[in-house]
Design a protein around this nucleic acid. Structure first.
Lengths: 366, 366
DNA sequence: CTGTTAGCGCCTTCAC
DNA sequence: GTGAAGGCGCTAACAG
């Protein structure tokens, strides 16, 4: 039982000095004890220290330690959008790794605001974090200047930042998009729409879309020689700007026309009426599903075969085929990379591309 | 091993001393400048300081400031489960409020592990956070001892902790459960199952369930006098332990029996076969929906009318009536409360109960 | 083995 | 108006 602080207010936590006095020794020994240099302490002294710490309920002040040794075990975690389930899942991996490595993540949520992102980045340096993991939103190389390269260590998650040479870990976007495209092709879909948010600074969106196009082209090329039917496959890319309602409506209308056209044509030929829609990520998939349901009713899946990268909790419920990202691992690896850099391991910028996993559900059945 | 500060090793950030030298003045003036005591500085000196800061890209070290003045503007945010959309939404409010008040939230995710929760709590005190806002998982009063009361200021979110007198902000659980129950009753449902996770330490679960029972009883009482049909209404409580697969299956089987029984009876009488299921929160609702879909197929909603507290993103897609919590406000208010306490406002423990909003969708239509 | 002595970067009296 | 000195809680040489 600690001294009852009858008078409320500021019970002023015990300091190392208090402990030293209580144990009848000097601060140094306490410090040594705290840092596990047990071998250099007589068992007797050690016991006294232990008792004193217990009695005073002493807890070393991380801030003070950090100030002294120049490292506070804090790392920054800059998130573009916590609303995206992807982000939360990555965070789990981050937390776990930090825990294992004795790091403490300072989590900052930019909520899709570039200005916030900038501010947080500078706030983090103010707290002298030892490194940052950033799931960049719109940062330019300049904003990240204090970071990476000559500044504090940094590793990027999911997205690269132009002009910045830093470690990056994320999904193998190319392979994932190919996987999805080929799955749709294999299932016999011949008209595929790839729907993605505006590319902007987000490299992963670009990569996925490019891989989709390449996969479609590869299929067409192969088909020209072998399978006559294959050559009919056509891929379209649709940009969906979720941040702008009007633009979103406009894009969705375009998709609707394609769906209806295909439906009419199919009626004549007597074949599966569905076109396939490949959503580049979960937010896009959700928006699409909501729209389609509003337009075609509960049976919307008889009109469209939806496939998505990311595997949100509602995918199973709605029966949608997805490509699940190894989110936990992404977060975990990111921290490991950062830790190595913090510890001074000097390597050139590395890329860590983790594979996605295709989860087949009813939406792409034929 | 100290890394040799070559061209890129450790650029060692500028300190207040560097700035003072660069500006040809003393540290005191720099400090004054940093703290906005402009009126006490000659415009000329002030300009020189500004220039020096700019040139050195100086940024004050929060840790050092904190050490000196005893407040580091850090607050702890202890989360029970980031996987729950509720949590993320609350977090948005917290972030916003912190930003407005110049606070920096240290976010800790216990991931439903009581042990983690304990450890984080102690880690937070180690960083000398000025306060904590906790969405408690299983903390006992003793764990929180250093917190609240005589310790550091604390405010609870969503759940109270037995024996701890602290501010608490969250949903008006009683009103929300009543709202939902009455909605179902109004829609003519006469058999209602309230499904909730094991109560454990979570006060909100208890409150919701109690309010549900009270509402059912109130209805029965009123019905005894007026509406003969009303007296037939029966409420059941089902505990669903999501942490244990076997127990979950067991509970779901019980629900299945009720559904089937109702269905058979309805077939004879020729009336709506659906029983209503009131999920105490989103995780429960999701688990239920997944199970029902697996058992009854895509048309599961013709067997069960699902209503849930919380309004997850898939609710709209699935057409489920919900009671949305004012999550953002909850987070925001929590920080405001904490801030007041940090600033020394001494009031007795306050409760802030915010109202939920009923969002009627297809699931409860008749 | 143990204690003494300097600071880490900053703020805060207290003189000038 | 401005600066010098001391100290926040802790660690890291140096002695003893």
């Amino acid at each position: 039982m600690s001294a009852t602080p009858t008078s409320q207010g500021a019970p002023r936590r015990a300091t190392i000095t208090d402990v030293a006095r209580e144990a009848g020794t000097g601060k140094t020994s306490i410090s040594r004890y705290l840092n596990g240099e047990m071998s250099v302490l007589s068992p007797e002294l050690r016991a006294r220290i232990e008792a004193a710490i217990e009695r005073l309920d002493y807890q070393p002040n991380q801030m003070a330690r950090g100030l002294k040794r120049g490292r506070n075990r804090l790392i920054g975690m800059l998130l573009a959008d916590l609303t995206n389930p992807y982000t939360v899942e990555v965070l789990q991996g981050v937390e776990a790794a930090c825990h294992a490595l004795g790091l403490m993540p300072l989590i900052c949520h930019a909520a899709n605001e570039v200005e916030m992102e900038r501010r947080y980045l500078q706030l983090l340096t103010t707290y002298r974090v030892e490194g940052v993991i950033v799931n960049a939103l719109g940062v330019r190389e300049e904003t990240l200047r204090p970071v990476g390269g000559g500044g504090i260590p940094a590793v990027l998650v999911d997205r690269s930042v132009e002009g910045l040479a830093a470690d990056i870990v994320g999904l193998d976007n190319r392979a994932a998009a190919e996987l999805g495209t080929r799955h749709l092709l294999d299932r016999g879909f011949r008209e595929i729409w790839f729907v993605v948010q505006p590319f902007e600074q987000v490299s992963s969106r670009r990569l996925r879309e490019a891989a989709f196009r390449d996969a479609m082209r590869a299929h067409a090329d192969a088909g020209a020689h072998a399978d006559a039917d294959a050559s009919a496959a056509q891929g379209h890319t649709l940009v969906l700007n979720l941040a702008d309602a009007a633009q979103t409506e406009h894009s969705l209308a375009e998709l609707d026309r394609a769906i209806d056209t295909a439906h009419q044509r199919a009626g004549r030929i007597g074949v599966d009426a569905r076109i396939a829609v490949f959503a580049a990520n979960a937010p896009v998939a959700l928006r699409l599903a909501l729209h389609l349901k509003a337009r075609y009713g509960d049976a919307w899946q008889t009109r469209v075969a939806l496939l998505s990268i990311d595997d949100p909790e509602w995918a199973e419920l709605t029966g949608i085929t997805t490509i699940r990202q190894p989110t936990y691992d992404i977060g975990y690896r990111a921290v490991e990379f950062l830790h190595e850099r913090i510890e001074g391991v000097q390597t050139t910028a590395r890329d860590c591309l983790l594979p996605g996993e295709l989860i087949v559900r009813a939406s792409t059945a034929r």
